[in-house]
């Protein structure tokens, strides 16, 4: 490592921030009544925490561009997976024909023994 190690004081400061953000997100979810904003806010706070952990605990702030690129590649491909799958789920209801909206209805399992495994926790 070419640079100085991050000091314990910085780590402590980041840690306190992380705890505060955790408390905030719990508070907002249980007492906040954010309605439609609940999910974006919760994920936004999680992302903020991730950035803090990544930059300081994982030393990304001192990393070379290659490391950042690898992290971003992982995130990018995740976004691709979510977004393109979403194009399917999002637009399924646009067609009103009953044949195409929703999943096919196969309801009769051919194999017996369904539900014979106790509480299913085996």
């Amino acid at each position: 490592m070419a640079h100085k190690p991050i000091s314990p004081v910085t780590y402590g400061f980041i840690y306190v921030l992380l705890l505060l953000l955790t408390a905030l997100t719990v508070y907002l979810a249980t007492q906040g009544h954010l309605g439609v904003w609940e999910i974006p806010v919760a994920l936004g706070i999680a992302t903020a925490k991730t950035v803090l952990v990544g930059l300081y605990f994982m030393h990304l702030i001192h990393s070379n561009r290659l490391t950042i690129l690898i992290v971003l590649a992982g995130v990018l491909f995740l976004v691709i997976m979510v977004m393109l799958t979403l194009t399917d789920y999002w637009t399924r209801s646009w067609l009103t024909s009953p044949q195409v909206s929703g999943a096919p209805s196969i309801t009769q399992p051919l194999r017996a023994g369904h539900g014979s495994s106790g509480d299913g926790r085996s």
Partner: peptide, 13 residues
Amino acid sequence: WIYVFPLLYLMRA
């Protein structure tokens, strides 16, 4: 876990 927590515990609306 930072993501698991809100995704599972906090999305109640």
